[in-house]
Each structure stands twice: as C-alpha cells, then as structure tokens.
Nucleic acid binder design. Structure first.
Lengths: 302, 302
DNA sequence: TCTAATTATTGCATAAATCACAACAATCTT
DNA sequence: AAGATTGTTGTGATTTATGCAATAATTAGA
C-alpha cells in the first residue's frame, strides 16, 4: 500500500466531504478511493471515517489523524518542490575543484562575473594540484586540463590551452632569439612538474613539418607562477599554457618565441560525477564557463 | 511509486552508507533499493546520491532532502502510532532520560506543570549527557536534541532548538562586533563536544545566502553551562542552543551577535522504544511536552 | 410506506507495478 | 593481476492496483 496516496485520499475525502467527489478530484475511480481509505484504516487498526451512504463523519481518531497528517503532507510537498526548484534554478553551494594556477588566472574572474548573474549561488572553491576524488570528497565539479582518464565521470570540454614558449627580453639579449625548435635544445627550459612526456616537446611549423626536441631542464616546479617568475627574471625559457603567461606577455615582461611553431593543445574540461539529474547549478555554471572561455581565452596571447 | 517507501529507502541508504546494507536492513533485495532511489530521483528530477561502486556521497539536494524528509517520516510514524494507541488515564511511574542542561532549563518546569494535571503519575528523571540505551536501562522515554539515528526507536519532534552566537560585552569591546559569519572565522568559538560536523557551521542570511565557515576552536567542553560560563567571562564567542543561553541573554551577561544570520535548527525529539502499545502515560506526557514547547520555547530568546 | 436517487462497497478480469535472481560493470583490496 | 565487493540493469513470475459493473445501504420526497 502506498501510504502517502492513502493519506492523501483520506484527506481529500475529508476535505470534499465524500468519496465520489474526492475521486473525481484525484482523477481515479471511487472504488480506488474506497480501497485506499479502507487499507489505511486497516493499517492504523482504527476506523477514521464513519460513513453512511448519505453522510460522512470523522471519528475521533480520524479527526486527530487528519490534523496531524495534513501538515506533514504539505511539508513533504514543500520539501519535494524545494528540491525540484534547486534543479531548475541555480542556488545552493557549488563545490568546485581545480588546479591552483588555472583557478587564480581563469576561474576567479569567471566566478566573479557568474556570481553577479546568480547571487543565490555560493562557491566553495578548492584550488589544489593534487588529484582529487570528486565523489568521495563531495565535489560538484572539477576543472581539469589535459586528457581525462577517470572512469565513471562525465567530461565536457569548455576550451583549449595552448602551450607557449616564452622568454624575457634580458634573456633574449644574452642568448639570442631561437629561430627553430632545434635551437632550444641547447638552452634551459623551465617546465611544469606534472607535464606529460617530460622533456620531450613536439613542435609543428606553419608548413606542417614536425620537430620533436628533447630539452634539458635544470629547474622544475609544480607552480606555474613560480616558473613564470623565474623566466621573467631571465633565468631560462619557459613553456607554459597561454593563460598562465598572458599577463607577462601583455606587459612585455615576457616575449613569445617560436611563435611560428605550435605545440599540441590540451583540452580544458569540466568534469562532474554524472549526467543523470545534473543539477541546475552545475549545468548553468558549466554552460557559462564554456561561453566565458570562448569569449575571454586567447584574446591577448594568441 | 510508493513515495513513502522510496524516501525510507533513501534515508536508510544514507544512514547505513550503502545500498546493500540498507537492503539487508529493510529485508529487500539491493535491486529493489536501487530502483526505489532511482525512482525517487526521477520524481524529484534531481540526483540525490553520487555513487561510485565503492563510495557514496550526498549531493546538496540529497543532503537537504534528507534533512527535511527524515523528520517528516518520524512525525508520520508518530501520528500513525498515536492513532493506534487507545486513550487510557495515565498513571504509574515514568522513567525519563535527558541531557543535563536541557533537563534543568526546560524539563523541570514542564514536569511541575504536568504533575499538577496528573497527580497519579510519578516521575523518575535521569539527567545525563552520556548516550543511554532506552531499552536496556528500562526508560519509558528520552528527550534528545538533534537528528535521531538510533534504529528501532520512535522519535516524535516536540520542538526546535536554534543555535545562537553569543559573546559577552567585554569580549565585544575588546574584539569588536562581527558583522558577517566570515569574520567569526578568525576568532575563538566555544562549541559543544558532541556537535555534528565539528568546526563547520552553516549560516544563512535573511536573504537566503549561505555562508559555510570553518571556525577555529581551542576550547571544547561537553557541558553547555561550562561553555556559557567561559563565554560570559569574556574568553570567546559561544554557539549554543537558545534554551541554554536564554538566562544570560535576558540578564545581559551575554549579547547575541550575528542575529541576522540563522544556523540550522535542531529538532527536540521525544524518543521511546516501541510504537506498538504505546502506554497512555508516555503518550499523554509527550502530547503535553509538544504543546508546552510551542507555548514556552523561544519566547525570551527569539 | 414506498420509491427513486445517491453513494459507498465488492467481485472480477485486466493492466501495471514490483520483486528477486542473475548477469554485468566498476572499483578497491590483497 | 585476480578476487571480492558493490551498484545497476534485464527478465520472467508474482503481486498489487485499477476500472467497470453489480450490489447494498441510506435518505428525500411523494
């Protein structure tokens, strides 16, 4: 027996003063109502409604049960619709995980702009370069750079990052400007600790010729900003995603080298646990990120 | 879909931390549980539980729905069992267990008033903050604050407690008055040892925005009066249920801060071993408590 | 008092939902 | 690397619910 439907049927019978009217209101037959109420009475081991064919009256138990159960039904409806509303309009807290540098450079302004559009939504942003378990740590969403390997998760690409070779003007004066990727091999390259295929970079020229070079790396760090700072001080050349070095390129603290050659771009992905019943806050924010990325990324450094 | 069973299944999955364990507890197969929860999610158009085969975590929607629906289920159980019970005059001895502070502040005057109405009933009151086993120690009734997790017991909510942020005037002079929950994070907060989610408090402003803050806690105690005394002496801010700090707030020894923000209220529940054959003394006293609570609670401190 | 009208209940055949088993997929542990 | 654990998904059998129609019961009106 569906107790909620039974209670609802009982309540409607009370409110409309009859089984037939309640049945019509609920869109079911009178026999169904009759059985629902009878089952409820059997379940409660008490008669709730004294019925003569002509007139209904509540028993004392029925009166008390009606008064107590109706508010509960309303509360439940309220709880359910509240959950549904949060599935439609974005509100609540969005727990978000992403890498430190990407978060500081790209996500922070994005969240600022999004937050103005949706003030009800509160962000809980966790910047970390360690691998995180979305489900276990209760994240709604993570932004990842590179190919996603994790199973059971949904990844939606929201943009690309383009690795770029950059050097400071001082460095260029001292070492000269490399014209081909091969010339880089003799110089120090700063590179991110977690980069795939350490020390091997595949350049492709505008004409389509490929240059695979193995670079010698003295300094490493797992912070993009540290690498940028080292490069700016003239220590070495740095290969980093465009969004990290964009400010230095704009200010002239760093200059792009080998601009005629491209390196393999990496996808920027929004990753979330499941596409089924994707909550509005996640869906709306990911939609916004995709739009924001196409609007703001690569406009200064490309 | 039987919404009642679906919600119950969902709640059990949350409480037991797994579909399989919940299925065993409810005496049905895991596939039934899986479908029940899936149907509920479809009904609510929201994912409630993020699941990996190995680990579960509640979504925000799931968390909120759990918190709202579980008390409703308990209330409904109570309403049903109340109907089943027959009305007899209460007499005999009522063995009653509750927390020390709540007993001193709330229960003592309630028992005084009830005792005048039912002189045949003798109370045996045991104040203690340790967890008690109702059945083993032969209690008829316990009053608990917070969500009831114990199985096989019936809980009927008789009121709410509202956590409040309070500080002494001296403390406020020394540290200034915090205007937002975030400002609290830098201060010492006194908190009860048994509080859920230690050190994390969710504030909600009148506008509905949520502020989840992690407070630094140096001092802890499992006595509400001790905390109140420490706060009154100006040691730190205290977050405690309204009924504990009400006297200090009335006398001005403590002042409420962040009054514009609300913290999640906790249910005050009457808990008893079995809903079958609920004795008249228990039922009558619980009915009285519910009425007494709505009449007397929150009239001074709200 | 009798009849007609209205209303709840019940029997029955059909339709729908549910369940457990099992195969499966994903993940964690040893 | 393999086994163990856990959640999901088909599938057929069982259970349950539903609507229709017949039935029983009560009251208003003649």
């Amino acid at each position: 027996m569906d107790r909620f439907r039974a209670i609802e049927a009982f309540a409607r019978v009370v409110e409309f003063g009859g089984f037939a009217r309640a049945a019509e209101r609920l869109g079911i037959s009178t026999s169904a109502i009759s059985r629902l109420v009878a089952d409820l009475e059997a379940h409660l081991e008490s008669r709730l409604i004294n019925r003569t064919t002509r007139r209904l009256s509540l028993t004392e138990a029925g009166q008390s049960f009606y008064e107590r159960s109706v508010p509960l039904l309303l509360d439940l409806e309220e709880a359910e619709s509240s959950v549904r509303a949060s599935a439609v309009s974005p509100k609540g807290t969005l727990r978000l995980s992403c890498g430190v540098t990407f978060g500081e450079h790209f996500l922070a302004p994005a969240i600022c702009e999004f937050s103005a559009l949706h003030p009800q939504l509160v962000f809980d942003l966790d910047l970390s370069d360690r691998p995180v378990d979305l489900v276990e740590e209760g994240f709604d969403l993570a932004i990842r750079i590179g190919v996603i390997v994790h199973q059971g998760l949904v990844a939606r690409r929201i943009g690309w990052t383009y690795p770029m070779c950059c050097a400071s003007p001082a460095w260029l004066r001292r070492h000269g400007t490399p014209r081909t990727p091969e010339e880089l091999g003799s110089h120090d390259i700063l590179t991110y600790t977690l980069m795939p295929l350490p020390n091997v970079w595949r350049f492709e020229s505008a004409q389509g010729t490929r240059h695979e070079i193995r670079v010698t790396t003295r300094h490493r760090a797992n912070s993009g900003r540290v690498l940028t700072a080292l490069a700016t001080s003239g220590l070495a050349v740095v290969i980093e995603p465009d969004f990290i070095v964009a400010p230095e390129l704009r200010s002239g603290a760093l200059v792009r080298v080998l601009a005629d050659y491209t390196l393999a771009r990496s996808p920027i992905s929004a990753v979330y646990p499941s596409r089924r019943h994707l909550s509005a806050k996640v869906r709306t924010f990911v939609d916004f990120l995709a739009e924001y990325a196409t609007r703001t990324l690569h406009t200064t450094a490309a």
